[in-house]
Design a protein around this nucleic acid. Sequence first.
RNA 1: GGGCGUAUAGCUCAGUUGGUUAGAGCGCCACGUUGACAUCGUGGAGGUCAUAGAUUCGAGUUCUAUUACGCCCACCA
Length: 883
Amino acid sequence: MSNQEALPRAYEPAAVEKHWFPVWEKSGCFHGKANPQKTPFSIVIPPPNVTGILTLGHVLNNTLQDILARRARMQGKEVCWFPGTDHAGIATEARVVKFLKETENVSRDELGRDEFINRVWQWKKEYGGKIITQLRTLGCSCDWERERFTMDEGLSDAVKKVFIQLYNKGYIYRGQRMINWCPAAKSALSDEEVIYRDVPGKFYHFRYPYADGSGYVVVATTRPETMFGDTAVAVHPDDERYAGKIGKMLKLPLTDREIPVVADQHADPTKGTGAVKITPGHDPNDFEVGRRCNLDVINIMNPDATLNDFCPAEFVGLDRFAARELAVKRMEEAGLLEKIEDITHAVGYSERGNVPIETLVSAQWFCKMGELAKPAIEAVKSGKIKFYPERWSKTYFHWMENIQDWCISRQLWWGHRIPAWYNDDNPGEVYVGETAPTAPGKWRQEEDVLDTWFSSWLWPFSIMGWPEKTEELKYFYPTNDLVTGPDIIFFWVARMIMAGCEFIGEIPFRNVYFTSIIRDDKGRKLSKSLGNSPDPLEVISEYGADALRFSIVYIAPVGIDIRYSNEKCEIGRNFANKLWNACRFRQMQGEVSADFENVPAGLSGDEEWMLARLEEAAKSIGEELDKFRFHAAAHALYNLVWSDFCDWFVEAEKLPLRAGGKEKERALAVLDYALNKILKLLHPFMPFITEELAHRMGFVAENDSIMFSQWPEANQELKLDNDIIRSIEGKFEMVRSGRNLRSSYSIADGKKLAFHIKAANETALEVLTKELDSLKHLLNASEIELGLEAFDCASRGAAPSQLGELGVISLPLAGLIDVEAECAKLEKQLKDIEKWLSGVRGRLSNEKFVNSAPAQVVADARKQLEELEAKKSQTESILAGLR
RNA sequence: GGGCGUAUAGCUCAGUUGGUUAGAGCGCCACGUUGACAUCGUGGAGGUCAUAGAUUCGAGUUCUAUUACGCCCACCA
């Protein structure tokens, strides 16, 4: 794309985006490698599920990472952003099971383990990892050569090594424990994978008769079907109502079993009847009671949550919910149903399976977390790792300080198979190691696989080749920033910190930025079923990737949820178009200056003003990004480009551009200098359009990229004259006043007008004289009468403006002005002035204020008083003149 | 039950360490196409900062309580 070619009127993102990404990727721009000459900067991507497709959440998350990476690259750092995907055990297995059912009508079990796993790999090859392509569409500057998958060989080795190490340390153990069971996945889950929902339910009160026929005990339950697992009824030892009953037997209804009344602290005498049925096999509390009272633990369920053959015949094979209804029915028939209450209670659901989980006792593998947590807590406490927003550290500490053992085994096939073997010749003998044991015996490998997060928590170093001591690891670890959602703070962030501390002896990252959660414009969560989840690829094709990126950062508030709708992308699209046209305008003025990196000598006031705005923007954008305040940086850019550059500077420069000669040359040089800086500052946010424009304008060589140009830090050497800058602000204020007059008389902008300006003082007069041509240009004035003496508004039929920094501008409109209306306007102004005046006077006459407020504040108030008084008297004289 | 967050213009949000006329974008109203841009320009209207107290010379900003909404954690039958 040569810079000779004229720019089209409107920016068309599609072709530009399609053009640049392959160019970048092919040229190896994104590749990072150990380079001792440079400071390393690394990020690891939160690996999306291999089944996943791009969502707006990913767009936000990855745009932010890209901004960090691209800025660091421009700052001259050696950048590596490590990409990859997660094998996502449950999600992927379920997905492929469904796929096989639909395409081949075969089940997982029909295929068998090895064949099924083959099919998952096939599926992955064909359909998996779509999101990786989609992230390219978004412009992500990941080091795509380094893409990894959590089931890759090296990463799997890391998992094994870690498992063995923790096993040998005594942290990993296998045991019978109460766990969360997902009937959909038919697997154990960790506590974190259970989400609690308040749902309507019923509270059933049942009568359990004493075996000797001496009446009954009333117990209440929300889960009648679990009664077949009851092994006791507990009462509080001090509960007088049951004095003498402890030890008596009850007949468990609908069965031929008898169960004892036991005494246990768990029974709360203040609740209900004070008696509680005990189901040690299906309730964590009851399990503990069972332990204390030596009760049997009975599992009454099959893996799919149907009742097993321990239950009465007619219940066997029934789904738990059907069993519930039947149990209630039978109890009622037996006259043992006391009452039913409607209640709302929290029910645990499986996060992935979206069905109520079962708590049951099962043999699973666990990892003790207490010791692992200690250094990880310290890392955040000491500030080695910083959270943004900081408050998330509270959530982190709370969880870490109460951390429970982690159930890491899953009854799935897709995942890292646990490297443990059982000796069938010698039951109880277990071997844990990289490969099958060679010792004699009939060894059988554990069927279970590991929780997906057991590989994800190693991501920051497994992706760099650990346990090999690679160059990457040495150079890029620990990484700099992590950008992720707060919803996986426990699943992932906390565990990565523990893993880093434990296995590398060093934290995995220094800063963690938690993104906002995206909702629709009504504040609802985005979900497929609601149909309110836009497809980012469609948005990109409609608005452009840059537009989507910019918009989503621009609208993302600090620490709260984002309300998104596609129309918001107009912000970015319009902004891109504005930038495009600013460049188009510049291009139409002639060749780009030879030196666009430096400022020419002999600047005009407007030009100094522009440089000042640019400096201030560069400074604030840098500072905001350092604090991860992305949206603030985006707003600063928006104002810089639209308001400062386009609305004021470009308009003002049209004058010297028209003048031609040296003046034009200088104006062009400043425009180029500013545009070049603007494109650089904007590049991390909008990589495509800035690359395109930088080339079109000739700011970067044909084979180069803006992504390696130098990031504009605030320029300390630039000496700007604050008086001049202030006077330009005054000029702009006067222009606004003049336009206001024009507008209030509904005079078209195109009509040339004559104005009068009364300068506030000698200095103002000097400034105004110097800027007179500019004022005429910006006001589209045919003539401006300028002086120190009061303008006789009444005789000239003129409407005066409000008093500004530099003076009063008035618009003589013989015969046209409405004197009454003008007077009313001024009187209102006068009233306002008086109101403020009395406020300031009141303050200054308050001794306490004068004595205790900082000197500067008092001085400011005094100055304000003077100004207001002057303003008042001037306004009064204008008013008098008008009459 | 515990913890956290949010409440500012019609809508979505800014508002740094308290400093006195609370800002932006969108929307709305008026006017406007003379070559950068109608994906635009110019001007304008619009807010007793959720409520009640407290601290202070001064509170959108600090403290307490209340209300509403949202999120997280917690074994309550």
